[in-house]
Computed example of a mutant assay.
Amino acid sequence: MKAIKLAAMDIDGTLIGKNKILTGRTRKALTAAAAQGIHLVVASGRALQALPKDLIGIPGMEYVITSNGSSIFRLSDRKRIYAQDMMPDQVQKLLAFYKNYDCPMEAFICGVPYTSREYFERPGYFGAGPASVEYVRTTRQPVEDMRTFVEEHKNEIEGINFILRDMELKAVMRRQLETFDGLYVTSSVPRYLEISHGSVCKQSALAWLVQKLGILPEEVAAFGDGENDLEMIQYAGLGVAMGNAVSLLKQAADLIAPACDEDGAARVMEQLAEKRHIS
């Protein structure tokens, strides 16, 4: 196995647990890996503005893949160096679809997440735990009329989320959305149904960055726990699924780490910092 030169890491359920706290052990392991020359890259469904400051402030954290692969930002100057926004006609088709449903919607624009006021004010009603309630209220910009807002910004949408507490309704909506051409549909947590341009996923953005840096796929380690991490895990030379990961991710992974709440990612990163590969 080639030495690992880049680590791409999901956030929620991978680097931080339900309490939304980055542990000291994880911070130390990432810092040590960067000191050994390993490129650190966040790969998240979150928008840029919603990324934890203590995570992206770690020395050696260079790039962030956000909105499930719609964007790559260079952290040194917050410049968006890779962009795959939705097409205006795709956004309009989604808005037409949305007319049949009554659920909150989010839209990511240039790294900023906007959400329906009803979700901003009552995230717990839609399945957010106590820590996630605080996360929503400190990272989202509430909008009174998301339909009109999205229509007005249809030329700059990174991605759209529907927020659902009814899992049967989520399944119905997903089946319909998956019949639309040119869309990428995924779900990072149960209450989210996430839609992007069809060319988008964490893997496609990661592959672009890896090529830019002159790194081979087999020199990449990727860490994740959710469905939206699948393509990235399959792409990397070392695909690491957390112990708390969904089953399809564990099946695709080269290594199953301990759970996120057991500092599983940190344990693997400690080995990479020491030896640059996993025995």
Rank of each mutant, 00 (worst) to 15 (best):
K2P: 15
A3F: 06
I4N: 00
K5G: 03
G13V: 01
T14H: 13
L15T: 09
N19L: 06
N19F: 07
I21H: 10
L22A: 10
T23W: 08
T23E: 11
G24W: 03
G24E: 15
R25V: 10
R25E: 15
R27T: 08
A29C: 05
T31E: 15
A33Y: 06
A35C: 04
H39E: 14
R46P: 13
A47Q: 13
L48D: 04
D54V: 00
D54R: 07
I56D: 10
G57D: 10
V64K: 08
T66K: 10
G69F: 10
I72W: 07
I72M: 10
R74H: 09
D77A: 07
R78Y: 13
R80D: 04
R80L: 06
Q84M: 10
D85E: 12
M86W: 04
M87W: 05
D89S: 12
F97I: 06
N100P: 01
N100C: 06
C103V: 15
C103G: 03
P104L: 14
E106P: 01
G111N: 08
V112D: 03
V112H: 06
P113V: 09
R117S: 14
F120V: 02
F120Y: 15
R122Y: 15
G124Y: 07
G124V: 02
Y125A: 08
F126E: 07
P130Y: 08
A131Q: 08
A131I: 01
S132A: 15
R137D: 04
T138A: 09
T139G: 12
R140T: 02
R140A: 10
Q141W: 03
F149Q: 06
K154Y: 01
I157M: 07
N161K: 11
F162I: 13
R165C: 10
A171C: 09
L177V: 05
E178A: 04
D181K: 08
Y184L: 04
V189H: 09
P190S: 11
I195C: 11
G198E: 03
L206I: 00
A207N: 00
W208E: 10
V210C: 13
K212D: 14
E218G: 01
V220Q: 10
V220W: 11
A221W: 13
N228Y: 02
Y235I: 00
A236E: 14
G237E: 13
G237D: 12
L238V: 14
A241G: 01
M242Q: 13
M242C: 01
M242G: 03
N244R: 12
V246Y: 05
S247Y: 11
S247L: 14
S247F: 09
P258A: 04
E262R: 13
G264L: 11
V268Q: 08
E270S: 02
L272C: 05
A273I: 01
K275V: 03
R276F: 12
R276T: 12
